[in-house]
Simulated scan of single mutants.
Amino acid sequence: MTQNPAMEEPNPDTATNAPEQAPVIETTTESELARIEAERNDLKDKLLRTLADMENLRRRTEREISDAKAYAVTSFARDMLGSADNLRRALESVPESARVSMEAALSALIEGVELTERDLLKTLERHGVRKIDPQGEKFDPNLHQAMFEAPDPVTPKGLVSKVVQSGYKIGERVLRPALVGVSAGAPKPAVPPTDETGDGSTSGN
Rank of each mutant, 00 (worst) to 15 (best):
residue 13 D to I: 13
residue 168 Y to P: 02
residue 81 L to T: 05
residue 160 V to E: 10
residue 89 R to F: 03
residue 158 G to D: 04
residue 136 G to R: 02
residue 30 E to T: 03
residue 194 T to G: 09
residue 138 K to A: 11
residue 167 G to H: 02
residue 67 D to W: 08
residue 52 A to L: 06
residue 168 Y to D: 03
residue 104 A to T: 13
residue 167 G to N: 05
residue 74 T to M: 03
residue 108 A to G: 09
residue 26 E to V: 14
residue 113 V to G: 04
residue 155 T to R: 05
residue 56 N to Q: 12
residue 99 R to P: 00
residue 144 H to L: 11
residue 25 I to F: 08
residue 108 A to R: 00
residue 119 D to Y: 10
residue 78 R to V: 07
residue 142 N to S: 11
residue 5 P to K: 01
residue 135 Q to W: 02
residue 195 D to G: 01
residue 9 E to G: 09
residue 104 A to E: 14
residue 133 D to S: 15
residue 156 P to L: 02
residue 127 H to W: 03
residue 202 T to I: 14
residue 177 P to T: 05
residue 205 N to D: 14
residue 97 S to G: 01
residue 87 L to I: 07
residue 125 E to V: 04
residue 82 G to Y: 09
residue 177 P to F: 04
residue 102 M to Q: 00
residue 144 H to S: 07
residue 93 S to I: 01
residue 95 P to H: 02
residue 40 R to H: 11
residue 172 E to H: 12
residue 58 R to K: 10
residue 196 E to Y: 05
residue 155 T to E: 04
residue 45 D to K: 15
residue 108 A to Q: 09
residue 203 S to N: 09
residue 132 I to F: 00
residue 24 V to N: 05
residue 69 K to F: 07
residue 146 A to C: 09
residue 151 P to N: 14
residue 55 E to Q: 11
residue 174 V to S: 03
residue 68 A to K: 14
residue 169 K to C: 06
residue 64 E to I: 14
residue 34 A to C: 06
residue 106 L to H: 12
residue 145 Q to F: 06
residue 201 S to Q: 14
residue 123 T to Q: 11
residue 187 P to R: 13
residue 116 T to E: 13
residue 73 V to D: 13
residue 91 L to I: 10
residue 78 R to G: 05
residue 6 A to P: 00
residue 15 A to E: 10
residue 141 P to N: 07
residue 30 E to A: 15
residue 114 E to H: 07
residue 101 S to A: 08
residue 196 E to S: 07
residue 72 A to H: 12
residue 154 V to W: 02
residue 93 S to N: 07
residue 38 A to N: 06
residue 106 L to T: 15
residue 180 V to D: 12
residue 139 F to W: 01
residue 65 I to Y: 12
residue 24 V to I: 13
residue 136 G to C: 01
residue 17 N to F: 06
residue 168 Y to F: 15
residue 13 D to F: 15
residue 69 K to M: 12
